[in-house]
Design a protein around this nucleic acid. Structure first.
Lengths: 147, 147
DNA sequence: TTATCAAGGTCAAATAAAGTCAAAGAAGGA
DNA sequence: TCCTTCTTTGACTTTATTTGACCTTGATAA
């Protein structure tokens, strides 16, 4: 398969990320485009198609003067430790759904929150929060008489 | 990240604040501008964008002779400092409910979580989490096509 | 009490990034 | 070939920063 421009930019960025100390790099979109002699939006395209959350990447950016794009590869390894708690919490939500206490869309929303809203904190704290969430939800549904 | 002037002034001030006895400093706008060889309004800009209440800072000032700008970082002993973020997030949920994106009971459940599930962590982290929650919810409802 | 001057504040223009979106082109598969 | 999907491009949009002209406020000397 012949490598497309997008493929080459992807590879270039991934090498940089893997070499970096903290699996995180910052680039300037226009500058990178310059390097590959393409339009800046090409870089955006690569980011959108190859550095998605699903692939384990987080991208942030700032516009305006001295703007940048930061790409972080998050470590699934370190996530391992939270997994039990996360899975436990998600399983609980599933149960709530099966019992008709929450709807399917509510389950979806909460799952989404669980996956994406707690990335920025330590594993330790995530664990505690997941437990806390479980607990508080249980309380809540007991109070409200449901279940 | 290539630091913008605003970034550098921000950092400078934050270091001063953290070093200070009472997390509070007083500066002269013009003098600081002089230090960074920029116009005074640049300092105002930094204050407005980086030392907001949401970020946990309070700024006061006096014009005229012997004028000053005082920046205080609130001491996160109480919940006071999270209040803005919590209120903001709850207001957002209210809006979602009014727009029919979430139901009243969903709003109730999420509010409950907000109030009770994050008690055990530092105010600082709670602030970040509330912002993250807001962000992730917005993403979620955009993706799912609602609103 | 008033005039003067020394602060800080406001606002909008100029500039510097990055993002969006849709059209056009290329590659691959049925 | 024809259809679908992925890539490339560029015009236009949004956001962040920097700068400067002009405004407001407060202290103090006359």
């Amino acid at each position: 398969m012949k490598k497309s421009l997008a493929d080459r930019i992807e590879q270039y960025l991934k090498v940089l990320i893997e070499r970096s100390e903290d699996k995180q790099i910052e680039i300037q979109r226009a500058e990178l485009a310059e390097t590959f002699s393409c339009v800046p939006s090409q870089v955006t395209y690569v980011l959108n198609t190859r550095f998605t959350e699903d692939e384990g990447y987080l991208t942030e950016s700032r516009r305006g003067g001295k703007g940048f794009v930061r790409i972080t590869r998050f470590h699934f390894e370190s996530d391992a430790a939270v997994l039990p708690n996360r899975v436990e919490l998600m399983r609980y939500l599933e149960k709530l759904m099966e019992e008709g206490i929450i709807s399917q869309s509510e389950q979806g929303m909460l799952n989404h929150l669980i996956i994406y809203a707690f990335r920025d904190i330590t594993v330790d704290q995530r664990n505690r929060l997941f437990k806390s969430l479980h607990h508080v939800l249980t309380d809540y549904f007991n109070q409200t008489g449901q279940s």
